[in-house]
Each structure stands twice: as structure tokens, then as C-alpha cells.
């Protein structure tokens, strides 16, 4: 199976090329077009308990869609629901990644996606939610962002500051703490940043250029009130 990014940028799409018998899983509703050799079906991934846990805790769909090349080789195009870029992560069996709850787009069928808690305070303050997704296994994983996506690579002990709600994915070896943007609360709030995530290496961290919550607040001002 090979993932290829088509038209990288705001309206990026993934082209997955499959040989006969290969399968990938994708976010529910993400398929755009596919070769007739492929079949698409909804799948409760990770068993009913795992799927329920993922759906209830991260707000994602109970189902993934499985796209399988049953009648020969073929390709499928997959795109996220929101405008934004896409990037490919490689899992080698020894590493794993954490994804904020809406980042998963598609992966090799063998990669396991499960909901995990990131702790009460981190969940409350990081902007990434109480529960995130953990990807383990071996193969390719496509993630999507809101806006463009950028990777930073941190050496052991190296730190970086990322505004909350901008984290997309990070290696399992990366840790982060939520802290004030400035030394004082007043300047943290007046700077417009409030809380930020201080990530610690080693490992890669992907962040997105736009904050979905901030975009939602911006667009709400243009929606006329029905009352």
C-alpha cells in the first residue's frame, strides 16, 4: 500500500494505491473517489468496546470505513472534512504516535487507533480534549490538520512552545505540560495566548496553522441570530 499526497495545501487529498487483497481504514465519510476494484464498508474497529470508547470519549464516529482491493489493484482518494493539509507518518512497530481527536484521516488496516486519556488537567487546559487517539503498529498513517501543518523535530530534552488547540500529533516519546504563555496571568491573558503547551523532546511534533475554536468564534459573528 502506498499513500501519496495530492495537491498539498489547504485542500489536500490522499491517494492510496492498493494491490489486490490490501486494505486501509479511513475516517468515516472520507472517501472521495475509488477504483471499482475496491469495496468500501463500515467497520467497528477495535471491537465494540474499543469503538464505543473511541466514539464516546473522543466524539469520533463509531465506525471507520474499510477500503479493500477485493477484485484487483486499485486506488482510492481520501480527503478530510475541513480545509487543511495532510501529512504521512510512518509507524515502524517500535514507535507510536498520539493524535488530537480529529486528526486521524487514514492508515494501513493493521494500525490500531485507540482512545486514551491524557489526564484531567491536561485535557481541560490543552485545548486537545480530555481524550486523544493513540496509533500503534506498523505502516503508514495519514493525518489532517485545520490549515497548514508543520513538523518540528526535538532532540532529547529540547523544548518548544505550541499554542493550545494547535497540536495535531506527536511522537509517543514527546511529553508536554500546559502553562501560562507569559510569566504573569495578566500578561498571559492580555497577550491573547492565555495557555500554551510546552512540548519536550525527543521526537517529532506536528502543529496546525489554524485553531478550529478560534475560527468558529470568528465565523459566529457573521451568523444572524434567529431569536
Amino acid at each position: 500500500m502506498k499513500f501519496e499526497i495530492i495537491q498539498p495545501g489547504s485542500y489536500a487529498m490522499i491517494k492510496a494505491t492498493l494491490t489486490q487483497g490490501e486494505a486501509i481504514k479511513a475516517e468515516s465519510g472520507a472517501m472521495v473517489a475509488m477504483h471499482p476494484n475496491l469495496d468500501v464498508e463500515g467497520k467497528v474497529d477495535g471491537g465494540m468496546f474499543g469503538a464505543l470508547k473511541r466514539a464516546v470519549l473522543t466524539g469520533e464516529s463509531l465506525f471507520f470505513q474499510t477500503l479493500k482491493a477485493n477484485r484487483g489493484a486499485g486506488e482510492v482518494f481520501i480527503a478530510p472534512a475541513v480545509p487543511g493539509d495532510v501529512t504521512i507518518l510512518e509507524l515502524n512497530g517500535a514507535n507510536h504516535f498520539f493524535l488530537q481527536k480529529q486528526s486521524f484521516l487514514a492508515s494501513d488496516d493493521a494500525i490500531a487507533i485507540e482512545a486514551v486519556s491524557q489526564g484531567f488537567f491536561k485535557g481541560l487546559l490543552s485545548g486537545e480534549g480530555m481524550f486523544i487517539q493513540k496509533a500503534t503498529g506498523k505502516g503508514s498513517l495519514a493525518i489532517s490538520s485545520f490549515g497548514s501543518i508543520y513538523k518540528i523535530s526535538l532532540a532529547p530534552g529540547q523544548q518548544y512552545i505550541v499554542d493550545n488547540s494547535h497540536l495535531v500529533a506527536w511522537a509517543g516519546t514527546v511529553t508536554y505540560d500546559v502553562q501560562k504563555a507569559s510569566s504573569g496571568w495578566f500578561s498571559s491573558v492580555t497577550s491573547g495566548e492565555g495557555l500554551v503547551c510546552k512540548v519536550n523532546g525527543p521526537g517529532d511534533v506536528w502543529f496546525q496553522s489554524r485553531n478550529p475554536g478560534a475560527f468558529g468564534s470568528w465565523i459566529r459573528q457573521f451568523i444572524p441570530s434567529k431569536g
Partner: peptide, 18 residues
């Protein structure tokens, strides 16, 4: 034992190993 190894090449880049 399998592990994810940092320290060679680019910072943040890991290589699987035993």
C-alpha cells in the same frame, strides 16, 4: 528488546532497533 532510538542524524529523528 525492540526500541525507538534517538541520537543519530537529525534531532528528533528516531530509528528502530534492538
Amino acid at each position: 528488546f525492540r526500541g525507538d532510538v534517538f541520537g543519530l542524524g537529525d534531532p528528533g529523528q528516531s530509528c528502530p532497533g534492538s
